[in-house]
Design a protein around this nucleic acid. Sequence first.
DNA 1: CTTGCGGTTTAGATTCATTCTAACTCATTA
DNA 2: TAATGAGTTAGAATGAATCTAAACCGCAAG
Lengths: 149, 149
Amino acid sequence: MIQSLNEHNREDLQEALGKGGQKLTPQREVVFAVLLAQRDHPTVDEVFNRARESMPGLSLATVYNCLETFVGCGLVRQVNHERESTRYCPNLAPHAHFRDKETGQVHDIELPPEVMKSLRSILPPGFDSEVIEISFLGRTKAYDPLHSN
Amino acid sequence: MIQSLNEHNREDLQEALGKGGQKLTPQREVVFAVLLAQRDHPTVDEVFNRARESMPGLSLATVYNCLETFVGCGLVRQVNHERESTRYCPNLAPHAHFRDKETGQVHDIELPPEVMKSLRSILPPGFDSEVIEISFLGRTKAYDPLHSN
DNA sequence: CTTGCGGTTTAGATTCATTCTAACTCATTA
DNA sequence: TAATGAGTTAGAATGAATCTAAACCGCAAG
């Protein structure tokens, strides 16, 4: 069961929504709490199922609406892999995504500023980019520090 | 109207298909010719419409089948942007994609090896990646060399 | 109060890319 | 000539996402 937002997170949410001309509603609060509670890049369906545990009457359309609103306010990012269901991620820092071929799990990969810079530098003149999406596809092995070098 | 494949390209296609245990068929030849004729990252529907000009009986399902086969043989790459229709690209060299927000056009961006390397280097130990997808979203301005520096 | 208004939520219908299914074609092998 | 099997085909099915229209709710004006 998802606990509700703490003071701090509720204020953040309210402020971000306000800037986008949107209101804080009970449904938005529950959906946002779900995203913060488990940062595993859930699909809309997963958010829906988790959120319904604390708000049984919630409808799927509302989950779509809430998430769209959050994206519009810059509170969450959409993550697309191939043509699978869109996933949602409340990590605001610039980062790439690594998708495990076997489990389907998505992991955040930190993006150092110098890598961002070198990426931007490969754009020919005249190309002006606002968003850069980077995603890795592969496997994760258990990491054994004793045998690495 | 799409011209048919030249000797050289037909041989390449046949060889690549053969390695994947697939045969060269008239439909596959037409679909491949469409991809080579206009390298603008067409959707399945666009490929379908162009291909039907030279082969009117061709069915949409076959276009899906052909493109899937080509991807399996490493002849073409799929390009996904958000949840739009998948696009197809016969450019085999490693490259990123730039999508123009206004026109929807997709441009190939060359990926220098050192950028690839720096990208690979940001993966923590235990993460093993086969495929890296990089896509830019933005605008393209006419480039005026007189006023650049 | 209570009335009306605008934004939000809701269930269900709709859309649309893609995948599936089952029949058919056609070249090759037995 | 029959059988096999890959490839093709039209149309049905799927499933994520969007749309629609009605209901709901908080709130400001009368």
